[in-house]
């Protein structure tokens, strides 16, 4: 559904991705794992359009996304929850959520209904509705960031390290949510350092190492693969 073909990406002169190809199938959970600075976030930024690849193609359902600017990709249903939540800190929880529903795709479906859906998924956000997003705890901020992305009615939801810095109980809560929204029919691309849990829930997975895709396959199978440990630990 969402594919990368032979992507090279750079920050200035620094090459972050080397010939990366992958295919995120519709309706599945796809996990992208790897150590720090392996190029996971860059891969998501290429998909969402924040970084333009120097070589290669990004396609969504066969359509080349090169001429589609980042803000228009949201209208196609490609929505990213950025690393570090990146909420609008001086706005309320509700304002943050409503901004997630900014795109034409979201407005078509009735933002009020969508807000109810998000509040049902994360009741704590309704309790905090009028609080400034910057005053929430880490877990609540992550829920708000996911809720904000869901407001856009994504077809593919891309999550960049959603469990980073969260307590184990909250990590489980976030993974449960990922499974719930996937069961509702949404395709999920999950970037994680929490390899074990990510691979447990993933249908497909790929491992990035120093900007290169070194391993891919079915999620749970990869877990037992010795090559994963080698790639991951850089042995």
């Amino acid at each position: 559904m969402l594919t990368l073909e032979g992507i090279d990406a750079f920050y200035g002169d620094l090459q972050a991705l080397y010939d990366v190809s992958l295919d995120v199938p519709e309706g599945k959970i796809f996990a992208l794992v790897g150590a720090n600075a392996a190029g996971k976030s860059t891969t998501l930024r290429v998909l969402s359009g924040l970084v333009a690849p120097r070589r290669g193609h990004v396609r969504f359902e066969g359509k080349d996304l090169a001429p589609v600017p980042a803000h228009r990709r949201v209208d196609l249903g490609i929505v990213q929850v950025p690393e570090g939540r990146r909420l609008f800190p001086f706005m309320t929880v509700t304002e943050n959520l409503l901004l997630g529903g900014h795109g034409a795709r979201a407005r078509g479906g009735g933002p009020a209904e969508r807000l109810d859906y998000v509040y049902t998924l994360f009741p704590v956000l309704q309790e905090r509705a009028t609080q400034l997003a910057g005053s929430l705890s880490g877990g609540e901020q992550q829920m708000c960031a996911i809720g904000r992305a869901l407001m856009a009615r994504p077809r593919v939801l891309m999550l960049d390290e959603p469990t980073l810095g969260l307590a184990p109980v909250l990590v489980r809560r976030i993974f449960d949510t990922v499974r719930t929204i996937n069961a509702d029919g949404m395709t999920v691309l999950l970037v994680e350092q929490n390899v074990r849990q990510a691979l447990t829930i993933a249908d497909h997975a790929a491992v990035l190492e120093s900007g290169r895709l070194v391993l891919s396959g079915r999620g749970p199978e990869l877990l037992g693969d010795d090559r994963l440990k080698r790639a991951y630990l850089g042995l």
């Binding site: 969402s48 359009g49 924040l50 980042a70 803000h71 228009r72 949201v74 209208d75 929505v79 990213q80 950025p82 990146r86 909420l87 609008f88 800190p89 001086f90 706005m91 901004l99 997630g100 900014h102 795109g103 034409a104 795709r105 979201a106 904000r148 992305a149 856009a152």
Partner: peptide, 14 residues
């Protein structure tokens, strides 16, 4: 205001 607070995040909201 959202654009002022975080331009990249605003772009990701469409």
């Amino acid at each position: 205001r959202a654009t002022a607070q975080d331009r990249d995040a605003a772009t990701l909201m469409g």
